[in-house]
């Protein structure tokens, strides 16, 4: 077990104007990390009490760090992967005793559950799913949705976790017969689940019955749009999409996120807002996360940008620190913190 001290001093060089609404809380350095691929903050149950933890995924190792106070972190558990590299962490809300990770080379080949047996305090991992996994998302009430395969050969399934990381219940969702790129939960409509497809369609399921409720085509001017979050308000569906392959256009700048409103009854949709970079900033979407009404993205320029979805504009810019580009950005699942990561395993925690 190792303890890492907060290092805030070297951040003084950062342009404080650029930080906007961000305030550095602590820094976590993971020396055993060769190439970090993901980060997540979650509650972990230990001896009957829940404590905030940070999970750092590198290609060959996943580690769980406990917070000793807000400035010191202790590595509690480590899981090693020798055969297939780790691609991402899959945060599952309402789960406090296990971690889900996706493994593969370019595409996800396996979903594994990482556990810690309380008696021996030893780490173990269980294979949950394998195949050509195209999209995966952790859902409320200890569930995980995944789509395996493409087109007519696609299987969409929700697994509910039982004790010891196994599946307690399995529910199949009707396939939209086109490859799903991403899933999103719908705030305000608990049983609704959204998906965005390779054909630029948004699909809605009833996650309880598995029914495919609607397939809605959205504007073709943005290809490969990925849904991050949706909100049901006054009979309308507001969907946040990210665009990683937009072309610079004179009229709209370079939108990184887009807020779309859809009437699920008629499938008619309209653009509400496009979230572009402030003037003078360049870069396309590389990685991002949306929580409540804030969206964060790592740009190809190495900078992190944050937008307030209600205000409609960029509220903070975080340029690379110590001449190292950002590669990861996630909102914390335990508080209003932002986790920003660099390839070498450094994680910076900011209050927003």
């Amino acid at each position: 077990h190792s303890i890492e001290q907060t290092e805030i001093g070297d951040l003084a060089a950062c342009d404080s104007l650029n930080l906007g609404n961000l305030q550095l809380v602590s820094k976590l350095k993971n020396p055993s990390c060769s190439c970090s691929v993901d980060v997540s903050a979650m509650w972990w149950e230990r001896a009957g009490a829940k404590e905030p933890c940070i999970v750092i995924a590198c290609e060959d190792v996943v580690s769980l760090w406990r917070s000793l106070d807000m400035s010191q972190w202790e590595k509690a558990y480590t899981w090693h992967f020798t055969e297939v590299p780790v691609l991402q962490i899959i945060p599952v809300p309402d789960v406090f005793d296990l971690i889900c990770v996706a493994l593969g080379n370019l595409e996800i080949r396996e979903i594994r559950v990482l556990l810690c047996s309380s008696s021996a305090e030893s780490e173990k991992q269980v294979l949950l799913k394998s195949g050509n996994i195209k999209a995966v998302l952790g859902l409320a009430k200890r569930r995980l949705v995944s789509s395996i395969g493409t087109f007519g050969d696609q299987q969409v399934q929700i697994i509910t976790f039982g004790e010891n990381g196994g599946s307690k219940d399995e529910q199949f969702l009707m396939s939209p017969d086109e490859t799903i790129l991403a899933f999103a939960e719908v705030q305000g409509a608990q049983e609704a689940l959204l998906g965005s497809t390779i054909m630029n369609n948004i699909v809605i399921w009833n996650s309880k019955t598995g029914q495919l409720l609607k397939k809605m085509h959205i504007d073709d001017c943005y290809q490969a749009s990925v849904c991050h979050r949706a909100y049901s308000e006054m009979g309308l569906l507001f969907v946040v999409l990210s665009h990683s392959c937009v072309k610079e256009s004179q009229s709209f700048g370079n939108p990184v996120f887009q807020l779309l409103v859809i009437n699920p009854k008629t499938t008619l949709s309209l653009d509400v807002l496009l979230y572009s970079l402030p003037q003078g900033q360049a870069g396309r979407f590389l990685d991002g996360d949306v929580k409540d009404h804030v969206a964060a993205a790592v740009l190809t320029s190495g900078t992190i940008a944050i937008w307030d979805l209600l205000l409609g504009h960029c509220t903070a810019l975080l340029p690379p620190v110590s001449e190292q580009n950002w590669s990861l950005v996630k909102w914390s699942g335990t508080d209003s913190h932002l986790l920003a990561g660099q390839k070498d395993g450094n994680i910076f925690i900011y209050r927003y």
Partner: peptide
């Protein structure tokens, strides 16, 4: 945005679509 362009809106869209969609 122009709300009228979205057609008739239902507050119970989820329940209505669930009752119409095939199981």
């Amino acid at each position: 945005c122009r709300k009228a362009d979205l057609g008739p809106i239902s507050l119970n869209w989820f329940e209505e679509l669930s009752s119409e969609a095939p199981l």
